[in-house]
């Protein structure tokens, strides 16, 4: 997947950070900061005014304050402003979440120890009948 800051900033608040760090560490990929960073994506002013009608613009501005940012229709990486430090975090996240795949292996349940196999990049979460 191409680096997509919009997707990553939308995803960031939804990530269970400790779990992701632990999983990354187990795979030997420990590049994530200890606490979850807060990154917001700013759209370039000029473009925004060109593309959005005034009424919906004011609506989006308001909701941006309180709720997770609304997903704009026309934002691509080309017209967003991103702090270089934030960009590095997003690039690390991109590498871990979108460019890292376990092709063969297993996941072990931290609770009961059941092993879920991964074959050809497809994890198998089916349980035997005595466990369902």
């Amino acid at each position: 997947m191409a680096f997509n800051p919009l997707f990553l900033t939308n995803l960031l608040p939804r990530i269970e950070w400790t779990a992701l760090r632990d999983a990354a560490a187990e795979l030997g990929l420990a590049t994530l900061p200890e606490t979850k960073p807060e990154i917001t994506l700013h759209r370039q002013q000029s473009r925004r005014q060109q593309q959005q009608p005034p009424s919906s613009e004011s609506e989006m501005e308001e909701t941006d304050e309180t709720t997770p940012p609304l997903l704009p229709m026309d934002t691509t990486s080309s017209n967003t402003i991103l702090d270089p430090k934030d960009e590095q975090v997003l690039r690390d996240l991109h590498r871990l979440l979108l460019e890292t795949q376990v092709v063969e292996g297993k996941m072990v349940c931290g609770n009961c120890g059941f092993e879920y196999r991964i074959k050809e990049g497809i994890a198998n979460f089916l349980l035997p009948s005595h466990l369902v």
Binding site: M1, A2, E16, L98, Q101, I122, F125, L127, V132
Partner: peptide, 23 residues
């Protein structure tokens, strides 16, 4: 659109590993 494809896994909706998490 392979860029948009995050992949797939074998699972039953009734016993899905996906859930909301408490945090």
């Amino acid at each position: 659109t392979s860029d948009q494809d995050l992949g797939s896994f074998t699972s039953d909706l009734v016993n899905t590993p996906l859930r909301g998490w408490s945090g």
